[in-house]
């Protein structure tokens, strides 16, 4: 059985200032439906790699709830602008908090 809490290392800066390259995302697999403003871990519909983005819009498509996800650093983010909304089955977890590489 997979652990309910998992840790991922973040690569890239599209989630600045919330998280930056090299930070750790402490995340959980246990949650109900994603909510607006939450930060999710999910599989990219483009290439299947794990990504971290924030839910900026929730909408329904053919009866299924979909989540439009964007980087906090919106001008520098590959996100739903490129691959559209994601479905719940693509969501792997929700970020609880971030352990930052440097405390300033």
């Amino acid at each position: 059985m997979k652990s309910p809490i998992f840790v991922l290392k973040i690569s890239g800066n599209s989630m600045k200032p919330f998280a930056k390259d090299g930070d750790y995302a402490i995340s959980t697999r246990i949650f109900l439906s994603p909510r607006l403003g939450e930060v999710l871990i999910f599989r990219s519909p483009l290439d299947g790699v794990m990504m971290i983005k924030r839910v900026s819009r929730i909408y329904s498509e053919e009866g299924e709830e979909r989540y439009y996800v964007e980087g906090d650093n919106r001008m520098r983010s590959t996100d739903s602008k490129a691959f559209g909304g994601i479905s719940k089955k693509e969501v792997l977890g929700k970020v609880l908090f971030v352990s930052r590489k440097n405390v300033t």
Binding site: L8, S11, G12, N13, G71, R76
Partner: peptide
């Protein structure tokens, strides 16, 4: 080695 979550920051052409 933790797995990586990508916060891509390239131009989003895909």
């Amino acid at each position: 080695k933790f797995d990586t979550a990508y916060a891509h920051c390239d131009f989003p052409c895909g």
